[in-house]
Measured scan of single mutants.
Amino acid sequence: MQRVNMIMAESPGLITICLLGYLLSAECTVFLDHENANKILNRPKRYNSGKLEEFVQGNLERECMEEKCSFEEAREVFENTERTTEFWKQYVDGDQCESNPCLNGGSCKDDINSYECWCPFGFEGKNCELDVTCNIKNGRCEQFCKNSADNKVVCSCTEGYRLAENQKSCEPAVPFPCGRVSVSQTSKLTRAETVFPDVDYVNSTEAETILDNITQSTQSFNDFTRVVGGEDAKPGQFPWQVVLNGKVDAFCGGSIVNEKWIVTAAHCVETGVKITVVAGEHNIEETEHTEQKRNVIRIIPHHNYNAAINKYNHDIALLELDEPLVLNSYVTPICIADKEYTNIFLKFGSGYVSGWGRVFHKGRSALVLQYLRVPLVDRATCLRSTKFTIYNNMFCAGFHEGGRDSCQGDSGGPHVTEVEGTSFLTGIISWGEECAMKGKYGIYTKVSRYVNWIKEKTKLT
C-alpha cells in the first residue's frame, strides 16, 4: 500500500490518463441519441435557420407576430419608411378606419389613436360632414345658397324668414311668412316636400332668348283662358290664391305678392273693366268669414305684352289694390325667389296649380277651390304637342294621358313649387288646347323671366 501511494504521488498524470480511459469505455446513459432527441424537440425550422439574422431580410411573422416588435424591426421587413409607417399605425392600436367614419364618399386613412378623412370636392370637416359648395344638395341650405369668396357655403332665406341657429334652416321672422300653410287642420295635408338634388348652379339658368321682337298675326285659340281631375282644397291650404270678379264672377285667378299687390295673367284683364279681388276665398257660393274683398285701382301688364300681336306672350300683369290686405292664416303671400332659384325650383319637376275653373272641358265651374299636382314636361315634348308657338318664356306641365289639367277660369292662378315646406311661385296658368285632352298640356308663363320686374313694381313704400 505504501508503494502504491508513492507511485500516485510521483505520477499524477498517469492516474488522470487511467481515469479518462475508464470513462470513455463506459456506456453513456444520461444523453439520448440524435434521433430520439429530435422526437422530443420537434420544432419547425425557421426561415433563416442556421444563418445569422443580421444578414437576412426581415420576416413579418418572425419579427412582429411571434413577439412584439419595434418600429426598427418592422422597418427591416418593409425596407421602406412609408410602408412601415402605414403598417405601424394599425399594428400599434388597430384600424381606426374600420367603422368607416368618413361621410359623403370620403376616404379614410388610419393613424395612431386617430384617423384622417380625405374629402371629395365640396366637403370638409373631420368626417367630411361639412358642405362647402352650393353645387351639392344646395349646400344643405333649406332655401338659398351662395358661395363666399373663400368658396364656403353661405345660406340665406327669402323675405319674412331668418336663418336658424344651425345656419342652414329657415324659420319665420314674421307672423305670416310667405308660402307657408298655417291653418292647423290643413298642415297635415301639406304636399310632399321637395329635397334639393345635386345641381350645376353655374349652368342652372337656361341660355334662352326671349323672342321679344317676333311679330306674329293673332292666333285663334280655343278655350285658351284655361282644375280638371283635381281635388277639393281645404280652407287655408292655398292662402296665396285669390279669385278675380268682373263682368262675371271667378273669371280668373291670381296670387298675393304682398298686402297691396296681386300677380295674374295679362290676358285676364281689360282696361276700363272694374275688377274686384277676393282673398281668403274657399267656396265661392258661401260666406265663410275668411274672405277679404278689395278693388283694383291700377293694372300693370308687362311692358312687352301686346294682345294685338299675341294674347299669351309675356302673359303676366300686376294688380294694385285700393287697401292693403290683412295677412292671416287664410290670406298669405306666395314666396318669389330670384331668377336663378325660381328656375331651379321649376326644374324640380312638379308643381301645384289651383283655381275655381271648370271641372271638365266646357263644363261647370268649381264651387270649392280645386288643386292638382302636375309634372313638368320637357321642352321637346311640349313643342311636338301643339302647332302653336311655345315661346321661351312659357313652359308645359300636365299629363300625356289627359284627364287632369287646369281649365277655363283658372287662368292667372299660381303654379307653385314647394321647397322644404315653403311654396314659391314658378308659373302662372296661361293657356292650353281644350282641357285635359290626351297628348295636350297646360301652358304656363315662366315666372323666372319676370321676377325682377315683379319685385321692382310691387315694392311697398
Rank of each mutant, 00 (worst) to 15 (best):
S182Q: 07
D111S: 12
H314T: 02
A436E: 10
P301W: 07
G230Y: 11
Q408Y: 10
S11E: 09
Q2C: 14
T218C: 05
Q57H: 02
K339D: 07
V4N: 13
L23Q: 03
D315P: 01
F345K: 01
E10N: 13
I316L: 07
D212S: 09
L211Y: 08
T215D: 06
N38Y: 12
N151E: 09
M394V: 10
A9T: 13
D378Q: 07
R46S: 02
V278W: 06
Q241Y: 11
R373P: 10
N258Y: 02
V278A: 06
N42K: 14
D338Y: 04
A308G: 11
E35G: 13
A9M: 08
S385T: 12
L460H: 09
A307M: 11
R373V: 06
V181E: 07
E456L: 08
Y115A: 03
F123C: 03
W88R: 03
C134F: 03
G272Q: 08
N36D: 15
S114L: 11
F395G: 02
I256T: 02
V174E: 09
I316R: 00
A26M: 10
Q241H: 15
E67P: 01
T133L: 07
A266I: 01
G421A: 06
L367Q: 14
F348Y: 15
G427T: 02
V174W: 05
E231S: 08
S184T: 09
I15T: 08
G439N: 10
E27D: 12
E281N: 06
Y341M: 11
V77P: 02
T445G: 02
N222A: 15
T386V: 08
R384T: 14
L24G: 05
V243I: 12
L367Y: 12
L346A: 04
K311W: 04
Y352G: 04
I429M: 15
Y305S: 02
W356M: 08
P301C: 07
S354W: 04
L325I: 03
C268E: 01
K168F: 15
T389P: 15
E165N: 13
P172T: 06
T458Q: 03
C435D: 04
R191I: 14
S184E: 14
Q185V: 13
I214H: 07
R3E: 09
L23M: 13
N313A: 13
N151T: 10
P235Q: 09
F196D: 12
G21A: 14
N59T: 04
Q216A: 15
E340K: 06
I40K: 04
W356I: 09
T386E: 07
K234N: 07
S107E: 13
L460F: 10
H400Q: 14
N313K: 10
C252I: 00
L318W: 00
N203I: 08
Q241G: 07
Y444I: 06
E285P: 10
N343S: 11
K455A: 06
N295T: 11
C396V: 02
K39Q: 11
G409N: 13
D223V: 08
I334T: 02
E401L: 10
K311N: 05
T386G: 08
H34R: 13
I17K: 02
V277C: 04
G254F: 01
A307V: 07
S25I: 13
E456M: 09
E285R: 11
C335R: 01
Q143Y: 03
V174S: 08
N100S: 14
W453R: 00
S148Q: 12
G13Q: 13
Y47E: 06
S365I: 09
P177R: 01
R75Y: 09
C268R: 00
S49W: 04
V331F: 00
C18E: 02
D131R: 12
C145N: 01
R46N: 02
K347I: 04
P44K: 09
V56Q: 06
E433R: 07
V278D: 03
P172Y: 05
I256A: 01
T458M: 04
K339M: 13
F424Q: 00
S107I: 04
S184A: 11
S329W: 05
E281Q: 11
A366K: 11
C69P: 00
F224S: 15
G402K: 15
N113A: 13
L23P: 02
K339R: 15
L367C: 09
G58M: 03
R191D: 11
E76I: 02
C128V: 02
H303K: 10
N283Q: 09
I256M: 03
L20T: 04
T287V: 15
A149K: 13
V77Q: 03
V4G: 13
T84K: 02
D249W: 05
D95P: 09
K440D: 15
F144I: 04
K51T: 08
E171D: 10
Q96S: 13
Q167F: 11
C157H: 00
I262V: 14
T422D: 01
G94H: 12
S107D: 12
P44E: 13
N283T: 11
E208W: 08
E286I: 10
V326Y: 10
N59D: 11
G349F: 07
S430R: 03
P375C: 04
E323M: 11
D405W: 09
I299V: 08
G229P: 12
V4F: 13
E61Q: 06
K146Y: 14
F224V: 14
V30E: 08
T186A: 13
K89M: 09
Q143C: 00
G160R: 02
T342E: 04
E76M: 01
Y161W: 11
D131S: 13
G179F: 01
E259D: 06
C435Q: 04
K362Y: 06
S70D: 07
V419W: 10
D93G: 13
G105L: 05
T84E: 02
G280C: 02
E433C: 08
I15A: 10
N258I: 00
F238S: 04
P175H: 09
I443W: 09
C407V: 05
I334G: 00
V377S: 03
E54Y: 00
E433T: 11
R373D: 03
A164L: 08
L372K: 13
A337L: 01
W431F: 12
I7K: 12
A307T: 07
M394A: 07
F196Y: 13
T225P: 09
C117D: 02
R298F: 03
N104T: 03
L367S: 11
F123Y: 13
T218M: 06
S406I: 11
A149P: 11
L383N: 11
L325G: 00
V202C: 06
Q143K: 00
E86G: 05
C18P: 03
G363T: 11
C119P: 03
E159N: 08
L14P: 13
P414S: 08
L319E: 01
R358S: 12
L32K: 13
N203T: 14
V56L: 06
L376A: 04
C335N: 00
G421F: 04
T417L: 01
D150M: 10
W261P: 00
E340Y: 13
S156T: 13
Y47F: 12
I136P: 11
H289C: 09
G409Q: 11
H289Y: 06
A436W: 07
A265V: 03
V154L: 13
Q167D: 10
A307S: 12
I299H: 07
A149W: 07
N138K: 07
Y161L: 03
W88I: 04
Q57I: 01
D198W: 12
L425C: 00
R75I: 06
